[in-house]
Amino acid sequence: MAEQVLDTLDVALLEALREHPRAGLQEIARIVGVARATATARLQRMERTGVVTGFGPDVDVTAAGFGVQAFVTLEIAQGALEEVHRELAALPGILEAHATTGRGDVLCRVAASSHEALQQILVQLNHSASVVRSTSVVALSCVVPWRTLPLLRSEAAPGSGRSPSYR
């Protein structure tokens, strides 16, 4: 997908959606101070270009019973990334995995209901013929949760001739 440059109005719409997730589009447009058609067109463009990937609820995995989390670095066999991708996707406890540079090849974020359940996930990972070595670091607490708005705000292009009244 082509890189999308967001302007201050786009960011204001995203911020309003984040702060008022149950509001309808008419209400979001009112909060931001634009016409509903403008808000609709902007949000549809951000969906079409992949900037907005969903409107589902955010889930706190700790509150849902998966309070043990870890980051696992995998060193994998040469050329085994596709196989590792399939294996990781089949493990429900893998929240996300990223191919990386440096000593490890893949960094995984893992969640489990207990230390024993985490150990089972680690054993499953180490049984993979594609995994040469793994290193685990248990997360004690979340210092900065997943967020995007500060980054988007910091790099937003000036609005398209319109100064949103939001914020």
Rank of each mutant, 00 (worst) to 15 (best):
A2N: 13
A2Y: 11
A2T: 13
E3Y: 07
L6C: 10
D7V: 10
L9T: 12
E15L: 03
R18D: 12
H20V: 10
P21F: 03
P21C: 04
R22W: 14
L25Q: 07
I28N: 07
I28K: 01
A29E: 06
A29L: 03
R30N: 12
V32N: 06
T38G: 05
A39M: 04
A39T: 04
T40Q: 14
A41H: 11
R42M: 05
R45Q: 09
E47N: 03
E47I: 05
R48N: 03
G50K: 01
V51A: 08
T53W: 01
T53V: 15
G54W: 10
G54K: 01
G56N: 08
D60L: 09
V61Y: 04
T62W: 09
A63N: 10
A63R: 15
A64Y: 11
G65C: 06
G65D: 01
G65S: 01
G67P: 09
V68W: 00
Q69R: 15
Q69I: 05
Q69W: 04
Q69F: 05
A70F: 07
F71P: 00
L74H: 11
L74Q: 10
E75D: 10
E75Q: 15
A77V: 02
G79I: 06
L81T: 12
E82Q: 13
H85T: 13
E87I: 03
E87N: 08
E87V: 02
L88C: 06
L91R: 07
G93R: 04
I94N: 10
L95N: 00
H98W: 11
A99R: 12
T100L: 02
V106R: 05
L107C: 09
C108D: 14
C108G: 06
R109H: 11
R109P: 02
A111R: 03
A111G: 01
A111P: 02
A111H: 10
S113C: 05
S114H: 08
E116N: 10
E116T: 13
A117T: 04
Q119Y: 05
Q120E: 15
Q120A: 14
I121R: 05
Q124L: 08
L125Y: 10
V131M: 11
V132Q: 09
V132N: 07
R133C: 01
T135E: 14
S136D: 09
S136Q: 11
C142S: 12
C142G: 06
V143D: 09
T148N: 11
T148V: 14
L149G: 03
L149W: 07
L149M: 07
L152K: 01
L152D: 04
L152C: 06
L152I: 03
S154A: 15
S154Y: 08
E155D: 06
E155A: 15
A156F: 03
A156G: 02
A156W: 00
P158F: 01
P158R: 05
P158Y: 02
G159D: 08
G161N: 02
G161L: 07
S165G: 15
S165N: 11
S165M: 13
Y166C: 07
Y166H: 11
R167H: 12
R167M: 08
